[in-house]
Design a protein around this nucleic acid. Structure first.
Lengths: 125, 125
DNA sequence: CTGCTAATGAGATATCATTCTCAGTAGCCC
DNA sequence: GGGCTACTGAGAATGATATCTCATTAGCAG
């Protein structure tokens, strides 16, 4: 049976508050604001459970551990900041992607990743 | 000093022949057709050297080891087949990506990854 | 051809992300 | 409140990629 624990709530809250995809380490750091003794294993276990429930979505970017964001948002893409390594959501999507494909290939999904500096890092330089 | 070795040539040839990004393991398998005793360490060392020379470009996709392709091709994107896990080049790019960005963000690069089945895998099902 | 030394190969080792273990803790039904 | 048992935390174990070590091999300049 599924229990509602302090940890589970803290982890969901951290993701909700962030509003962007977080890695397990980022989740751990954020949720420790509430629960300082929180363990990494619990983060992984809980994330797995939330994924199974359909409450989270996996966001995988090249060269970094998987990140997780709350499910249910509409289609969007991601911006990966080279300054702070943070990942942000981008609320748009160009059209006509299907036309890019060579013949015979069957398109199921697409991911667009933008690289650069986020507003904070851009201002700092 | 840089020497022209059998191994270096076999690795470059494998990438040239493939015409698509290869992981170190894929490079190893392909180049062993010519040099059966080729070692993985040599692949990594050689790839590093070719990258430093600017002869190769790194292609990083989520959830997979980095792959490498010959440098100098014009801008393109990649298709990741879910059937065979192979990566193929896609010779096009939608316009207007910069318009997707929120204010303050500085865009330096972008990557578009298409997921689905390649022609061979699509036909097999 | 000869010697110098860069490059190689095989296995050991490092590095991380993720999962496992297990004793102790705490949700929740009654 | 009590008891059953799922959940937790800390560290060990795992798995996969990438690098290092070192004795041996082989480019290439002279």
């Amino acid at each position: 049976m599924q229990r509602t624990t302090r940890q589970r709530e803290a982890i969901r809250a951290a993701l909700e508050l962030a509003g962007r995809p977080l890695s397990p380490q980022e989740i751990l750091a954020a949720a420790r604001a509430d629960l300082p003794q929180l363990g990494l294993a619990t983060v992984y276990r809980t994330v797995k459970g939330l994924l199974a429930d359909g409450a989270l979505r996996t966001v995988e970017l090249p060269g970094t551990p998987a990140r997780y964001e709350l499910a249910g948002k509409h289609h969007h893409h991601h911006f990966h900041c080279r300054g702070c390594d943070g990942v942000f959501e981008v609320e748009a999507c160009p059209t006509g992607i299907r036309g890019l494909l060579p013949g015979g290939f069957r398109l199921e999904e697409h991911e667009i990743i933008l690289y650069g500096l986020c507003a904070a890092c851009g201002a700092r330089r």
